[in-house]
Write a protein that binds this DNA or RNA. Structure first.
Lengths: 335, 335
DNA sequence: TTGTAGGCGTTATCAT
DNA sequence: ATGATAACGCCTACAA
């Protein structure tokens, strides 16, 4: 592989000059620039990014930690981040935390050991305090889908409260009044916010929140089926069900169908996230869009702006969800 | 950030010694090793991976090119590669090619510019010749889900012929004899191989392949719906449908249901790939498992073995698909 | 505008 | 077993 030195020799200039045309930050006369470019061409020169990094103290890499590499949410998020970053000539180093505290800390440690210029985290198991502490370190840290007050300017998050609110409102608007709700883990901020939005919408309609119609699931299919089973076994009456994510909605749909429900006639079901398979479900799932791809792009822009000093990028920190109307929610009709 | 030099000072040894305990490849006395380790601890020393790379001419990174970062297949594949590689202390640089020739070439160029020790490609638009040429270059190239004879020892692929065969066989075993087939793009090797397997299974049962019951789709939902529409519009009679991937199977299922079919009673449908949403479909999709996660792991092992000289890793180049029996295929019953 | 030279933090080859 | 010292390929003052 040709080096900058060989190029300089062939072009008959100093290697400093070659470096200049490479980075075109300093003035170089047209003639010499051409000479250099021709020499590069001839040698098939390609800068050694490692050496560049060492000398400039910039790796041009940003680390990304996600829970899993598969899964619709992460895919969309990574896609958003990567496209934006790559267009700026930066590369992404991706690793996983598997939603476990140790896994996430190890992952962060791993990325840090890679000399990333910044890291973008989608973590769920690690505490707020840990993140606050981490962001005091020398490498800039950004957080996805999580709002931590003390470092809010480093967070790109969804307004989950609003999400829960519009989900419930959409159901109420269809005339439903007995609405069951399956939440995610109670210790997760997004779960709590979504329920709070739900409660707010109910309150506005003077419908009291019924603890019996509330179930805490696990954000997986099993949570949805277990939740619906719970409600049915208790012989509760309800005409609509809101699930705090699409996986649980899918689980609930399966369970409902296997137990004689005809969907959506016997039960309206609302999801959350609008992952890609929501459209594959039967009936197609009415849900709340979580613009995670956009959020990923925004996170990348935030990095570009703050770390790579690209000015004139406007940052939006919190994103708004919206209802995606499909087939799983229909107007209430008394039996 | 502390450097190896500062550690050496604090420990009262030369920096060469520090390097030795770091890489523990040369003999160092217990005493000095301890002194050094303590010094490292005190300074919170962390090796600069960039400098290591420059000096050792190893970036410890492997580039991965996928069509998209979202999508079930790629997610599983990346997960397999990453887990295996990270366990070995290597990191992955991931980028996308968007299934277009220019996109893929750009992506490869991008990875090459990043000084990866190796690159793993999942490309569809680029020609075999290009790949053969590419693999003559200085950085090792490995190919996923594609078999190129001339560089077969660098390919990890699925036996698609066998896949098409067992898919059809499974359908035949249920008593179906009129079987429609929706293929993927005809210029793709996997499409062709899957159809060939299909034909072989038919031939074994002395059923002649019927061109009328063959449709070329696009590997997307639209391909499935268009294909089924085509067959129905031509008023052909068939009791089973094989789709060359799950997306198309899903599209066909939707179209079928929207046009009065009751599934699976009126039509048995077989997919291919066993992507995660296959289990979310209604009825749950009977399909062919494409062990892409395992294949990803194997690709990583291949890199580990050939590039990072980890001996005693046995490589399996071609993987075998198997039938996943679920609910969308049922025995044939005459109307 | 162009060249010189020091430095980035390691690894690796010599000696000792 | 340990220590000098020269790479590794590039960037960047500082000089000219």
């Amino acid at each position: 592989m040709a080096t900058i030195y060989q190029v300089s020799e062939l072009a008959g200039v100093s290697l400093a000059t070659v470096s200049r045309v490479l980075n075109n930050n300093a003035r170089v006369s047209e003639k010499t620039r051409e000479k250099v470019e021709i020499a590069m061409e001839q040698l098939g020169y390609r800068p050694n990014s490692i050496a560049q990094s060492l000398a400039s103290n910039r790796s041009n890499s940003v680390g990304i930690l996600v829970s899993e590499l598969h899964g619709p949410i992460f895919g969309q998020m990574m896609a958003g981040i990567e496209s934006e970053l790559r267009a700026a000539g930066k590369h992404v180093i991706i690793t996983t935390g598997h939603s476990e505290e140790k896994g996430e800390k190890d992952g962060i440690e791993f990325l840090l050991s890679r000399n990333c210029d910044a890291i973008i985290l989608h973590v769920e198991a690690v505490s707020d305090e840990y993140l606050i502490e981490l962001s005091k370190g020398s490498v800039p840290v950004y957080i996805m889908s999580r709002y931590v007050e003390e470092i809010k300017d480093k967070c790109i998050s969804l307004d989950n409260n609003l999400g829960g609110y519009i989900a419930t409102k959409a159901i109420l608007n269809q005339g439903h009044t007995k609405i069951a709700y399956i939440s995610g883990h109670q210790f997760k901020a997004d779960s709590i916010n979504r329920v709070n939005g739900h409660k707010k919408a109910l309150a506005e309609k003077n419908i009291s929140f019924d603890e019996d119609l509330y179930f805490v699931g696990d954000y997986k299919e099993t949570g949805g089926s277990a939740g619906l089973k719970h409600f049915i076994d208790k012989k509760l009456s309800f005409s609509a069900l809101i699930c705090a994510n699409d996986e649980m909605a899918s689980g609930a749909m399966k369970y409902a169908r296997e137990h004689g429900f005809e969907l959506p006639n016997d039960l309206s079901i609302m999801g959350f996230d609008n992952v890609s398979f929501a459209n594959y479900l039967y009936p197609k799932l009415t849900t709340i869009e979580n613009p995670i791809n956009e959020m990923g792009k925004m996170a990348a822009k935030l990095v570009l702006k703050t770390v790579y000093s690209k000015k004139d990028l406007t940052i939006q920190s919190v994103f708004e969800p919206r209802v995606i109307f499909r087939q799983s929610v229909i107007p209430y009709s008394p039996v």
